[in-house]
Structure formats: C-alpha cells, structure tokens
Amino acid sequence: MQDRNQRRGSGREHVGEENDLAAVTQRAIDVFFLSKQDNGEMGGIGYWQTANGYTAVALHDKWSSSTNNARILQTLLQKVERHHPFFINEFNDDTLWWAHCLLELFYLTHDPMYVQKAIVVWHHVSESVIRRGQHTVKGMDMQGGVFWSTRPNEDNINSITTGLYSELSARLAIICSATLGQNLSPVPSGAEFRQAAETSLRWIVRCRYREHDAVVLDTIKLRSHELVDWTFTYTTGQLIASAAALFTLTRETWYLDLAKKLALASMKRPGWVEQDGTLTESGAYGKGNHEAWKNDDAVGFKSVLVRSLAKLCTVLQATKLEPELQRAVCAFVRRAFDSLQERDTNGKGQYGPWWAGPMDLPTSHSQLAILDVMAAMRLIGTG
C-alpha cells in the first residue's frame, strides 16, 4: 500500500472496466483491509483514523443492505479492544470515533453488546463535559463543551470532540427510545442522553459557530482564553451529523434548519470545494503543501464531511423532506466519486490523496480518506 514507486496515470482508462458500483466500492474496501495488522489496527494510519475507516466500511454495508464486511470488522474490533479496553484512550475524540463505530456494528449485527460498550464510552467522556457555571471564556459559559483529552491540566475545549459527544448522546437516546432500550441495563434514561446532546450542541452554536457563513470553528483554550478559529471540513461536518441526529430524536425543525444551512454552505465553500464542484479541502491536506506519502490527520477531514452529509440525506429520505437539498447532496457525492474514478485511481482499487487529481501514489491514509465517498455512493446509488 505504501510503495512510493507506485505512480500511475489518471486511471480514466479503467473506469469502463469497473462500472459496477458494488464492485468498485467493495474493491476499495478490500484494498484498505490489506493493511490490517495483528493488533486489529491499520498500518500507516493512526488510532482514530482506523476507527473512521472501519466506520465507513460499516456504513457501506448498512447503506448496501448487506453484511459482507461485518465479520471481518467484528474480528478486527475484538483485536483492537484487547489493547484498548472499551476502545478508550486519553483522547476523548479518539474514543468517541470508536463509539460511533460501535453503533454502526450494532446496526449491522443487532448485537446489543456494541451499544453497551458505547454507553461505557459515553460515561467515560461525560466526566470531561463542562458543567454550567464551571468555566467562562470571554463572557461565554463553557457549559456543554468537552475537553479534548483526559490528560491532567487539559485546557483545550474543541468543537470536534463536543460534536462527537453530542451526536453519540442523541444516537443513544434514539436507541433507548426503541424496544432495544428496554433490554439494556444499567443505562441512563433517554432524557439524560437527550439533555447531554442538546447541551453540547448548544455550546458549539454559542461558542464556535460563525453564523454569517455557516462554519464551525475549532478550539477554545481555557487558560489563555485563546480562540483557535481554524475552519476544517470535519468540524462543520460533525455539527451537521449532530443536528441531524437531534432532529431525528426531537423532530424540532430548528435542528434541521441548522443542518441544512451548514450543508448548503459546506458544498460550495471556497478553499474546500474546487470550481468544478470537487471536494478537496486543499488547504488542510492538498497537493503542494503535503507530500503524498506522508500521513496527516487532515487527510480524512473531508471524508467526515461527506459522511455527515450522507447521514443528513438518510434523515431527509426517511422524512421525505427537503428534496432539493437531497438532490444537492447526491450531486455533491457523485462529483467526488466521479473525480476519484477519473483522476485519482490507478484502476486497481487504489486511490491517491488528491481527490481532484492527479493520481500520485496509493497509501493507507489515501485509501482511508475515500471510503466514506464509497459508502455514500452506496446510499445514494447511481440510478
């Protein structure tokens, strides 16, 4: 996967050979799994990146109405948990990515064990949630914000960790409102999960949401009161996912309106999306400011945005709402997929890191980044 000498052309000549969506997307997954290690993680990428890759694979199966990859995911997660009990490490965002992966495995296997483990994660991270009146920065109450890690003297409160916690809380509330919730014990009430979800989402909107251009900012440093206003795709994407989950839970239109505004802005934001409509977020991880062989957390940020837009699309499909937004999301996903097929593959199921091309070289991290596009394509289909 990481041979720097594997440099190919655009891959355009191979599109006709793999015109079946199921084959194309599954082949990308199979290539990704070639990098699996004995500890259950993927070689060449980090712990949280592995969780995101597995989540994308699980979503691919979920949105394909299949369980083709469920068994290998179950085996890999068993291996990972031997080294990280309940998938917990010192970074709350890492741990929360794994919790969302656990919930997708639950939906594939219907095994409540995965929900129970996600609840353990929820309890663990809840210890890092700021209470009302506990901290104030620049006149803003930090209630609902989640510390980045459990390290002593941690002072970073960031939107990605808080968004992940909000969405996890909402998803657990949804599960507890269903029949399954009656079989989970001990478990907080659905109302407790809902309150946690709403309180953390409000922190993002109150403290890290720039309304005029509908973008989510990154971090607040508690001790210095510094506002770190980075605008990465995944912070905005994660708020979309949290708002969509809360709309599903509550049917309050404010959450849907928020998700819609964020989604529409994200699909045309300069610096994230090229003039032809291809999502690249080149400033975070793009050709010219990164070496293709070098892994970086930012390589998968845009993938999270694609996933979140697809999650929103599932909500809209289920409720038959916002048909124009549904069409916009589908077109956006298709544009990313088509660009990958035309400009960023060697035709062997391997993909490079530059979604708008040219194909450079395949690595574990470049393969990871495209998996959410593959999953989203299985959701929307090709007609």
Results as ranks from 00 to 15, higher is better:
1 M>H: 14
1 M>G: 14
5 N>M: 15
6 Q>S: 14
15 V>P: 00
16 G>Q: 06
18 E>G: 11
19 N>W: 03
28 A>C: 07
29 I>P: 01
31 V>I: 15
36 K>A: 08
37 Q>F: 04
40 G>Y: 06
41 E>R: 15
41 E>M: 15
43 G>M: 05
50 T>C: 09
51 A>V: 01
52 N>T: 15
53 G>F: 12
54 Y>W: 12
54 Y>M: 05
63 W>N: 11
64 S>T: 05
70 A>L: 08
76 L>N: 14
76 L>D: 13
77 L>K: 02
78 Q>Y: 10
78 Q>D: 12
81 E>R: 14
83 H>R: 15
91 F>D: 01
92 N>M: 09
97 W>H: 03
100 H>R: 12
107 Y>V: 00
108 L>D: 12
116 Q>T: 07
118 A>T: 04
122 W>Y: 14
123 H>D: 11
124 H>Q: 15
124 H>M: 12
134 Q>D: 04
137 V>E: 05
137 V>K: 10
138 K>C: 03
138 K>L: 04
141 D>H: 05
143 Q>W: 10
150 T>F: 09
153 N>R: 08
156 N>I: 11
156 N>V: 14
158 N>P: 02
160 I>A: 06
160 I>N: 02
161 T>R: 14
164 L>A: 09
166 S>N: 09
167 E>P: 08
167 E>C: 09
169 S>R: 02
174 I>E: 11
174 I>Q: 06
175 I>M: 10
183 N>Y: 14
185 S>M: 04
186 P>M: 08
189 S>R: 12
191 A>K: 06
194 R>C: 13
200 S>H: 01
201 L>P: 02
202 R>C: 03
207 C>N: 10
208 R>T: 05
211 E>I: 09
215 V>N: 12
218 D>F: 09
222 L>M: 00
225 H>M: 04
225 H>F: 03
231 T>K: 08
232 F>Y: 14
246 L>W: 11
247 F>Q: 07
253 T>N: 14
255 Y>P: 13
257 D>K: 15
264 L>Y: 13
264 L>K: 14
265 A>Q: 08
271 G>L: 13
276 D>K: 04
276 D>S: 13
279 L>Y: 10
282 S>P: 04
286 G>R: 11
287 K>I: 01
296 D>M: 03
300 G>I: 02
306 V>K: 01
307 R>S: 02
307 R>P: 02
310 A>Q: 10
310 A>E: 08
314 T>W: 09
316 L>D: 13
322 E>R: 07
326 Q>K: 00
335 R>F: 04
338 D>S: 11
338 D>M: 04
339 S>L: 00
341 Q>I: 04
345 T>N: 09
345 T>W: 05
348 K>L: 11
351 Y>M: 13
353 P>S: 15
356 A>C: 11
358 P>K: 05
360 D>V: 00
360 D>H: 07
363 T>K: 08
363 T>Y: 05
363 T>A: 10
366 S>P: 01
370 I>T: 03
370 I>R: 01
376 A>L: 03
376 A>D: 08
